[in-house]
Measured scan of single mutants.
Amino acid sequence: HESKLSILMDMFPAISKSKLQVHLLENNNDLDLTIGLLL
């Protein structure tokens, strides 16, 4: 999960990174759901 998140972070600009982190917190680190929201 950690490395997947790092790769994902590299793919998005800074603003999207903050949104990603907020979504991860709100969704209890449900990375798949977060990716779904961003794609």
Rank of each mutant, 00 (worst) to 15 (best):
residue 30 D to Q: 06
residue 19 K to Y: 04
residue 34 T to C: 09
residue 18 S to D: 07
residue 18 S to M: 08
residue 9 M to Y: 10
residue 3 S to W: 04
residue 33 L to A: 13
residue 24 L to I: 00
residue 7 I to Q: 15
residue 26 E to W: 02
residue 37 L to C: 14
residue 19 K to C: 06
residue 15 I to M: 09
residue 7 I to T: 13
residue 31 L to P: 00
residue 35 I to H: 04
residue 23 H to K: 04
residue 28 N to P: 02
residue 3 S to V: 05
residue 10 D to W: 02
residue 39 L to M: 15
residue 6 S to V: 08
residue 32 D to K: 12
residue 19 K to D: 09
residue 23 H to R: 08
residue 28 N to Q: 10
residue 32 D to N: 14
residue 2 E to H: 09
residue 15 I to L: 09
residue 15 I to K: 07
residue 3 S to L: 06
residue 3 S to R: 05
residue 37 L to V: 10
residue 3 S to A: 07
residue 17 K to Y: 10
residue 25 L to T: 13
residue 37 L to E: 12
residue 38 L to S: 01
residue 30 D to W: 01
residue 37 L to M: 11
residue 13 P to C: 02
residue 2 E to M: 15
residue 10 D to I: 08
residue 8 L to E: 00
residue 19 K to M: 09
residue 33 L to K: 13
residue 33 L to E: 13
residue 10 D to A: 04
residue 7 I to W: 04
residue 36 G to K: 14
residue 26 E to R: 11
residue 2 E to K: 15
residue 6 S to Y: 15
residue 27 N to G: 06
residue 22 V to A: 12
residue 33 L to D: 13
residue 12 F to A: 01
residue 19 K to F: 08
residue 2 E to C: 15
residue 17 K to G: 06
residue 38 L to K: 00
residue 18 S to C: 14
residue 39 L to C: 09
residue 32 D to R: 09
residue 1 H to K: 15
residue 30 D to C: 05
residue 20 L to M: 06
residue 14 A to C: 09
residue 5 L to K: 01
residue 31 L to I: 10
residue 26 E to C: 05
residue 38 L to T: 02
residue 35 I to Y: 06
residue 9 M to K: 07
residue 21 Q to M: 09
residue 17 K to V: 06
residue 28 N to S: 13
residue 15 I to T: 08
residue 1 H to D: 14
residue 32 D to E: 10
residue 21 Q to E: 11
residue 37 L to P: 09
residue 37 L to G: 12
residue 1 H to S: 15
residue 4 K to F: 05
residue 16 S to Q: 10
residue 17 K to P: 09
residue 35 I to Q: 08
residue 25 L to V: 13
residue 30 D to H: 07
residue 4 K to N: 11
residue 27 N to W: 04
residue 9 M to N: 04
residue 37 L to Q: 12
residue 2 E to R: 14
residue 36 G to C: 11
residue 20 L to H: 03
residue 38 L to M: 10
residue 17 K to S: 08
residue 18 S to R: 11
residue 33 L to C: 12
residue 39 L to V: 11
residue 17 K to I: 04
residue 37 L to A: 13
residue 29 N to G: 13
residue 33 L to I: 09
residue 34 T to V: 12
residue 21 Q to N: 15
residue 20 L to S: 02
residue 27 N to L: 05
residue 12 F to Y: 15
residue 21 Q to F: 12
residue 35 I to V: 10
residue 26 E to L: 05
residue 26 E to D: 07
residue 32 D to V: 05
residue 39 L to W: 10
residue 1 H to T: 15
residue 23 H to N: 11
residue 2 E to Q: 14
residue 32 D to W: 03
residue 14 A to F: 11
residue 39 L to E: 15
residue 17 K to H: 09
residue 26 E to M: 06
residue 25 L to P: 00
residue 4 K to L: 08
residue 1 H to C: 15
residue 27 N to A: 07
residue 35 I to R: 14
residue 20 L to W: 02
residue 29 N to C: 13
residue 20 L to K: 01
residue 6 S to H: 04
residue 5 L to S: 01
residue 36 G to A: 13
residue 10 D to V: 05
residue 8 L to A: 00
residue 2 E to L: 14
residue 30 D to R: 06
residue 14 A to K: 14
residue 14 A to R: 11
residue 15 I to E: 11
residue 39 L to G: 14
residue 29 N to L: 08
residue 27 N to K: 05
residue 18 S to Q: 14
residue 4 K to R: 11
residue 7 I to V: 14
residue 11 M to E: 05
residue 10 D to E: 13
residue 25 L to K: 08
residue 3 S to C: 07
residue 34 T to W: 00
residue 9 M to E: 11
residue 12 F to R: 01
residue 21 Q to D: 08
residue 31 L to R: 01
residue 39 L to S: 14
residue 11 M to K: 07
residue 5 L to A: 02
residue 29 N to Y: 11
residue 11 M to G: 02
residue 34 T to G: 02
residue 39 L to H: 10
residue 21 Q to A: 07
residue 36 G to N: 10
residue 10 D to Q: 06
residue 7 I to M: 13
residue 22 V to E: 10
residue 10 D to S: 05
residue 13 P to W: 00
residue 31 L to C: 04
residue 1 H to V: 15
residue 12 F to T: 03
residue 29 N to F: 10
residue 20 L to T: 02
residue 19 K to V: 11
residue 26 E to T: 08
residue 30 D to A: 05
residue 20 L to V: 05
residue 3 S to G: 07
residue 8 L to R: 01
residue 32 D to S: 07
residue 4 K to Y: 14
residue 35 I to G: 03
residue 21 Q to S: 13
residue 4 K to I: 08
residue 37 L to N: 12
residue 36 G to L: 04
residue 9 M to T: 10
residue 30 D to M: 14
residue 8 L to D: 00
residue 18 S to I: 15
residue 29 N to V: 05
residue 14 A to V: 09
residue 1 H to W: 13
residue 31 L to N: 01
residue 14 A to T: 07
residue 8 L to P: 00
residue 27 N to C: 11
residue 8 L to M: 02
residue 24 L to T: 03
residue 35 I to P: 01
residue 21 Q to P: 00
residue 21 Q to H: 08
residue 25 L to C: 12
residue 39 L to A: 09
residue 15 I to H: 12
residue 30 D to K: 07
residue 30 D to G: 02
residue 28 N to G: 13
residue 25 L to R: 13
residue 6 S to E: 08
residue 39 L to P: 06
residue 24 L to M: 05
residue 24 L to D: 02
residue 17 K to E: 08
residue 12 F to N: 01
residue 17 K to T: 05
residue 3 S to K: 09
residue 26 E to F: 03
residue 27 N to T: 05
residue 3 S to P: 03
residue 10 D to F: 03
residue 31 L to W: 02
residue 23 H to P: 02
residue 34 T to S: 06
residue 10 D to R: 08
residue 22 V to R: 13
residue 29 N to A: 09
residue 33 L to Q: 10
residue 34 T to I: 03
residue 11 M to D: 02
residue 38 L to C: 08
residue 32 D to L: 04
residue 15 I to G: 02
residue 11 M to A: 07
residue 20 L to E: 02
residue 34 T to D: 01
residue 25 L to M: 13
residue 26 E to P: 02
residue 33 L to V: 13
residue 28 N to M: 11
residue 17 K to F: 04
residue 30 D to V: 03
residue 32 D to H: 09
residue 6 S to R: 11
residue 15 I to F: 15
residue 22 V to F: 13
residue 16 S to W: 02
residue 12 F to G: 00
residue 35 I to S: 07
residue 16 S to E: 09
residue 5 L to T: 05
residue 4 K to H: 14
residue 17 K to C: 04
residue 28 N to K: 14
residue 34 T to N: 05
residue 12 F to Q: 01
residue 20 L to G: 01
residue 22 V to I: 13
residue 1 H to E: 15
residue 16 S to L: 04
residue 10 D to H: 07
residue 9 M to W: 05
residue 25 L to W: 10
residue 25 L to A: 14
residue 17 K to Q: 12
residue 12 F to S: 01
residue 15 I to C: 13
residue 27 N to Q: 08
residue 5 L to Q: 01
residue 6 S to M: 06
residue 25 L to N: 05
residue 15 I to A: 07
residue 39 L to N: 14
residue 11 M to V: 03
residue 16 S to D: 11
residue 12 F to K: 00
residue 26 E to A: 13
residue 8 L to S: 00
residue 29 N to E: 09
residue 38 L to E: 03
residue 16 S to K: 08
residue 19 K to S: 10
residue 6 S to K: 09
residue 10 D to K: 06
residue 35 I to L: 07
residue 5 L to D: 00
residue 9 M to G: 12
residue 35 I to N: 03
residue 38 L to P: 03
residue 36 G to F: 07
residue 35 I to T: 10
residue 10 D to G: 09
residue 5 L to M: 11
residue 23 H to M: 07
residue 36 G to E: 14
residue 33 L to H: 03
residue 39 L to I: 06
residue 17 K to L: 05
residue 34 T to E: 00
residue 34 T to Q: 01
residue 12 F to V: 00
residue 33 L to S: 11
residue 38 L to G: 03
residue 34 T to P: 00
residue 3 S to T: 04
residue 36 G to Q: 12
residue 22 V to T: 12
residue 22 V to P: 03
residue 23 H to Q: 07
residue 19 K to L: 07
residue 7 I to S: 08
residue 2 E to S: 05
residue 9 M to Q: 12
residue 21 Q to K: 09
residue 23 H to G: 04
residue 25 L to D: 06
